[in-house]
Design a protein around this nucleic acid. Structure first.
Lengths: 124, 124
DNA sequence: GTGCTTGCAAACGTTTTGCAGACTC
DNA sequence: GAGTCTGCAAAACGTTTGCAAGCAC
């Protein structure tokens, strides 16, 4: 357990939710300017292996990382990029039918659901 | 309408489903070696603008492109990478609850659902 | 001939890697 | 002192861009 790892964890608490590796690097660097982004990636990987941190793929942009204990899923607007955090139970019935029809167990924290947020509903 | 565009469309028919830009470039280049990958990207973008083609983000890897008329959604195994094509109606109830609870209309063709396929069910 | 399309090369943003030195225990 | 962790530089990957030459119409 090194100082950069400790700092990274602190920042994960602070910036809770939606932090990209870049965000985390900036945050960590505000307290320890010499911490390199590759260290951030390596530590995130390690923390993920330990089950402390999870990441999600949000469509185009970079992956976001958050603490595993702050478990939630993501809706991302493909128009304005807004991220809506939603509880895992929103996916219950999708999971049930995916399992029943395809034997596939979904991991809803690991991907983002793309679509349109309330404000961007197709205005054509 | 140029020859490289025509070829790209042909390849989209041939490789129907799950073709990355790279795959398509390789396929096109087998018939016309000088077509550059940037041309592939530009034509895919244009075809998408015209509504002929759609793309989906599959987690880590590159985006995949397919004809809009072959509409389907994707389950991707985070273990072995297998892609399972599924009909859009699998997402009906997720869409209903996302709309009702968050005013969010989902676009299920645009993202992949990550999880575990039948063969990779957590063996721990 | 006008204007869109192309190839090439170079850049981009995100993530990963190799290596030698520095740190933790 | 052994072994892990770090900074740095460079590469990898998928994708986008600027530009001048080439093509469709």
């Amino acid at each position: 357990m090194t100082s950069s790892r400790r700092l990274l964890l602190e920042m994960l608490f602070d910036l809770s939710g939606h932090a990209s590796a870049e965000d985390l690097a900036t945050a960590v660097q505000s307290k320890a300017p010499d911490v390199n982004i590759s260290t951030i990636y390596r530590n995130l990987e390690e923390l993920e292996r330990l089950g402390v941190v999870v990441h999600a793929h949000l469509g185009h942009g970079p992956a976001t990382y958050h603490l595993a204990c702050e478990s939630h899923c993501h809706l991302v607007c493909e128009e304005c990029g807004t991220i809506v955090d939603v509880p895992e139970n929103l996916f219950q019935s999708l999971n049930r039918s995916a399992t029943k029809r395809f034997g596939f167990v979904i991991d809803p924290q690991h991907f983002a659901v793309l679509g349109r947020c309330e404000a961007c509903q197709k205005p054509e």
